[in-house]
Simulated assay, not measured.
Amino acid sequence: MRSTVSQFTLPDLLSACPLQDATNPWYKEAAAESRAWINSYDIFTDRKRAFFIQGSNELLCSHVYHYAGYEQFRTCCDFVNLLFVIDEISDDQNGRDAYATGRIFVEVMNDPRWDDGSILAKITREFRERFIRLAGPNTVRRFTALCTSYTDCVAKEAELREHDEVLGLEEFMELRRQNSAVLLCYSLVEYILGIDLPDSVFDDPAFSKAYWAAADLVCWSNDVYSYDMEQAKGCAGNNVVTVLMEENSMSLQEASDRVGDQFKSLMREYLESKSQLSPDLPPEAFRYIEALGSWVIGNLAWSFETQRYFGANHERVKETGVVHLRLPSRFLEDSCSDSESDSE
């Protein structure tokens, strides 16, 4: 699935985002520990290990969780790297096999005694031990439920890829919110802040609007930034840019512009909803919604600091906004999977 054009211009999302970016002071130490932890299992080929390092998952965590203490930040790095492992295992699988891979992750998150002897089960168990130590019961319950939704939607994505099927926008966005892992990454905010919100907070209308706007801000921005990488791999079906082009007969540039318009609309919705949060909500709810904004701006900033999406030209792309589409052959051996774990 490749556009016939040779380049397109990104929407200027950074200018449309008035939020403040920052980085975590524990980045170097915790990132090195987390990366060594994953690499100790020797699950990557040399090419995949280079791709893992180039992806700068821990740098993403530094931006989006800049307020986390050392232990919490290390755990977040571990989780994002764990998601990368799940992608590495499932990226070439069909829907049925991808579902089976995801179930290993889910089973261990629900019951640490469950074990099929796999490396994925061991890695998941070690992450769970760190997470459970500080996470509250509501947070753990919601997080494990999201693990199931995430893996189910990753399997659905694999089925769609297998059949070369592209969903319509409404159905796609329901899937994208889950298979992007952004909701799981948002769930870590409670763990970091040491809070445990009741379910009633998530049902509050203004809180809910701000929450979903923040989630969609990450999904839409990630997709327009990752589009070139994905089309070069021949697997851009799980991308809102492709969805817009197919559903609305848009050109690549028109779809990119549409992402920019939607980002501005979602940003207004996030900011307005945040300002309308009820004073009856606990103070922790305000802290949570504020932290989601750090994810939005942090993801934007990180996308231009790493070679993940734009290769060695990432600084030039940030300056000019122009993306020159790469040839598919350059990425034929790379993964077709792209969650917040590797934007995600």
Rank of each mutant, 00 (worst) to 15 (best):
M1T: 14
P11E: 06
S15V: 13
R35I: 00
R35P: 00
N39E: 01
Y41H: 03
R47M: 14
K48T: 02
F52C: 04
S56Y: 08
N57S: 10
L60R: 03
C61S: 09
H63W: 05
V64C: 07
V64M: 13
Y67G: 04
G69N: 07
E71L: 06
Q72P: 06
F73K: 01
F73R: 02
T75M: 03
C77S: 04
V80G: 03
L82C: 11
L83W: 07
L83Q: 03
S90C: 04
D91H: 02
D92G: 10
N94A: 13
G95Q: 02
R96H: 03
G102H: 08
V108P: 01
P112L: 08
R113Q: 11
R113T: 09
D115G: 10
D115F: 09
S118T: 15
A121E: 12
K122T: 01
E129L: 05
E129R: 07
F131K: 06
G136N: 09
N138P: 02
T139P: 11
F143S: 01
T148F: 08
T148P: 04
T148W: 00
Y150D: 05
C153E: 12
V154E: 01
A155M: 06
K156S: 15
E157F: 12
L160G: 00
R161S: 07
E162Q: 13
L167A: 08
G168Q: 04
E171V: 10
M173N: 11
M173Y: 12
R176C: 03
N179M: 07
S180F: 10
L183S: 13
C185F: 13
L193V: 12
I195C: 15
S200R: 15
S200Q: 15
F202N: 09
S208I: 11
K209E: 13
D216R: 10
C219W: 01
S221M: 10
N222G: 12
N222V: 10
Y225T: 06
K233W: 05
G234P: 00
G234F: 05
A236K: 02
T242K: 00
T242S: 04
E246L: 04
E246P: 07
E247G: 09
E247S: 08
S251F: 11
E254T: 00
Q262H: 14
S265H: 02
M267C: 00
E272D: 14
Q276I: 07
L277A: 13
S278Y: 12
S278R: 11
P282E: 12
E284P: 04
F286W: 14
I289P: 04
S294G: 14
V296R: 02
L300G: 02
W302I: 06
E305P: 08
Q307T: 10
Y309M: 10
G311E: 06
E315K: 15
G321R: 10
G321Q: 10
L327W: 14
P328N: 12
R330N: 09
L332V: 15
D334N: 12
S339M: 11
S339K: 01
E340D: 13
E340M: 15
D342R: 06
